[in-house]
Amino acid sequence: MSDTAGGAELVGVVLVSHSAAVAASVAELATGLAGGGATAPVAPAGGVAGGGLGTSAELISAAAAAVDRGAGVAVLTDLGSAVLTVKALLAEGDELPPGTRLVDAPFVEGAVAAVVAASAGADLAAVMAAASDAYAYRKV
């Protein structure tokens, strides 16, 4: 088994939510919508250790390490402490794999766009752009 498509390493995606169920479900949704075949590595980091609502720096670090294939890691978050914790970890310098970025994107739509793009072999900048572009999709 290999995570590579066409020889290039794939960008990893981490989904950070206050709720473990939300993070896991959005990961499942995004992977499912990315379609058949091999998809990019995706890991949820939801809630706090022990199961409550909140943000866990340790779960985020572990998820980022788990999806890192050397091509960068795109981190999407819901709100509040999820955003602030990722920013604080990035400022630490050594808590997350090199090439880890916080993506400015809506959580659900951005996750789908990021996983679809990453699974197609897009590089980190293109994955981040695809996820951010999800803000432009108006529903009404």
Partner: peptide
């Protein structure tokens, strides 16, 4: 500061963690 970022679980963790660190 590092310990607060690791253990708090709410926004006060990264905020106070960043302050002290």
């Amino acid at each position: 500061g590092r310990q607060l970022i690791s253990t708090v679980g709410g926004a006060s963790g990264p905020l106070y963690g960043t302050l002290l660190r």
